[in-house]
Design a protein around this nucleic acid. Sequence first.
RNA 1: GCCGCUAUCGUCUAGGGGACUAGGACGCCGCCCUCUCACGGCGGAAACCGGGGUUCGAAUCCCCGUAGCGGUACCA
Length: 463
Amino acid sequence: MRSNYHQYSSMRVRFAPSPTGALHIGGARTALFNWLLARGQGGEMVLRIEDTDRERSTDANIAQILDALEWLGIDWDEGPLMQTSNEDRHRAVLAELEESGRAYRSHATGDDVRVWKDIHGADRGYRGEAEPDGALRLRVPDEGETVVADAVRGETVFAHKHLDDPVIARADGTPLYNLAVAVDDLDAEITHVVRGEDHLSNTPKQVLVLEALGAPLPIYAHLPLLHGPDGKKLSKRHGAASVQELRDSGYLAEAVVNYMALLGAGYDSEQEIFPVAELQQRFSLSRVSKSPAVFDEKKLRHINGLYLRELDEADLTSRLERFTGRTDLGPAVSISREKIQTLNDFEPLCGFIYDGVTEDPKAFSKVFGKAEAPAALKRAREVLAAVDDSFTEQLIETSLEPLPAEFDVGAGRIFQPIRVALSGTTISPGIFETLALLGKDESLLRIDRMLERLAAEPDGPSA
RNA sequence: GCCGCUAUCGUCUAGGGGACUAGGACGCCGCCCUCUCACGGCGGAAACCGGGGUUCGAAUCCCCGUAGCGGUACCA
């Protein structure tokens, strides 16, 4: 059974998405594993678009998949090949199979197959009679079994008596998936078929096609599926599920790659942050796990934060500017980088610097509900007004430092009022840095406005 | 229903017969740091699905059960 494996000298893998929607994380991970394998082994990767489902395959979807792969940094050596462009070859193979008697025409429908099973029981797969026309079914031998050699699962045995003769072409002669895949992989001299586990049950059909053709078999590797937090197959309702959505959520491509590599594979018992080159080196099909993995956005966020803080400032700045559409972010980047995990976290943290004070009644009432807060803010205003016009972080800190003692309160009781005056909220970058960045005039202006508001509400915040 | 795959902390995983009082990471809890939020540091709770074997010895091998998932299209 293991006699006819491929004899190609170098490894060739393929990623073959069907363009029926955006590239999901599951698909992206399949692409990544193929790519890591090829790049780590000096092999080649082929990109093939399985567009034989013309109803659902659109150019926009294809463009989206290419865009997602490019963003992730996954490249390929051949393609994108369109499966439909190989239809002549598919039809030739179909004709060959029919002529040799390995396949036959039949009008049997799914219902007919079901009736057959009801009569014959589970131990007899559907076997039809050859008819002059109709769909083309591949003849499965009654005896024996087909063994799928799987690099992650070992050998999986499918007894022929359980297999129905699979339909490999529609009545109109158009080839079906199981035929097209087998032929395309053969033609592309693919040595390792690495794909999702949902394809495992279809694999014997493809192996049977290859054997009917007397062709060599690739080595298969079926990856564990990705699930949502509820244990169900990952879908839209689990939040960011496509590569594009991840990008729009402010994740970094390198972090997404690192995280995806971790899903369904182990590399080291102590370490899990690996630059992509190391991932390529370490990746091995034998390190792929067999059980499904749950996509955990919390962990992605954590890893993203790690990568974000590793970026040099110019790089981070340009990424933030591209992401937010703002320009001249400059110093705001350095005072916020320790506090954000994604590109998307920047805006809520620092938006007030550019857009003015945020209205946050809860923050206002909480901070100015403290008796000394208005007076503390007034005093801070005086002290800050006296600071040299250079208004550096250091000078600001020195000037404000004595206030807590002066009011005999904790530092927070002095700084939070200032923070709310400047930003409107209780969360912002460090207060000295923020004051310095805003500049003396703007800082004093914002404090004055808050003081005026407080004066208008002499009994304290009503909110 | 039938066929197949899988089964270690809530999650991702390490483990491939003795090194396991089962390791790491995310998350969670507590403490420290601290002007908020984070970051960082320290500590803690938390798992071998159940039952039979095999073996001197099993998280690791085998069988059964159970559960989850996938497939079962003239979809891919």
